[in-house]
Design a binder for these strands. Sequence first.
DNA 1: TTGACGCATTCCGATATAGGCATATGATGG
DNA 2: CCATCATATGCCTATATCGGAATGCGTCAA
Lengths: 120, 120
Amino acid sequence: MARATTTSDAFNAIAEPRRQEILMLLRGGERPVTDMARDLGMTQPQASKHLRVLREVGLVRVREAGKQRLYGLDARGLRPVHEWVGGFERFWSESFDRLAEYAQELKEARQEGPQDGDVQ
Amino acid sequence: MARATTTSDAFNAIAEPRRQEILMLLRGGERPVTDMARDLGMTQPQASKHLRVLREVGLVRVREAGKQRLYGLDARGLRPVHEWVGGFERFWSESFDRLAEYAQELKEARQEGPQDGDVQ
DNA sequence: TTGACGCATTCCGATATAGGCATATGATGG
DNA sequence: CCATCATATGCCTATATCGGAATGCGTCAA
């Protein structure tokens, strides 16, 4: 098997830096493809492809306006992501304490038995 | 080119469902590899590989304990992700309203003249 | 020392990108 | 109907997975 499809969910879709840029840009309002491509320093096909992915996971929507296609943000799909990550909030707050805790455990372990240490 | 490396940052690392499961499981405290593999229904090599990725992006740390290697959560790396996604919070709240808003803007724009857009 | 156990790594195959480039498709204005 | 602008797609290459199976390696107990 290979990696999960970029269109499998919001997590995978926003993993790409370029797509993150697009989403941030769209917070400023709807915009046509070529404009975005220019502002973000990418080619038009590149922008179109990334927008396609974002569209497939529902993070952006399109609206036809004459020759142009205005892409707009539909951030609802980011909410689940925010909540999932938020489920770890208390852990990154405690991180420092926990590190100290581990250091402590480490010393104790050393005196008791053989040795150990942080690997990595 | 190919997709960004899974170890390039937390965004890419947590895009994998299996790794999400691991992180969730680790909220319960440190655990040895085989235990996790069993509980999550994956092979030991699979668990080891995913843990390696998580280790490389700093989302977990290891501690040697005799034959075992205890993996523990280090959620600090998730904070930036949470904040980035949080930057869209007001948008998923307004989503519905904005859709209506856009429809409105659309009509107005049509009567005025050409078009433009918010240029960030 | 030997064997069992816990974990990491390596090799393999199938797959899905991301980017570059060329081109097809659509709508618009003469 | 034609030329043009705005987008979407198709094709191609290099690359990095993910899973599976086999194996290497360090630790522990008898």
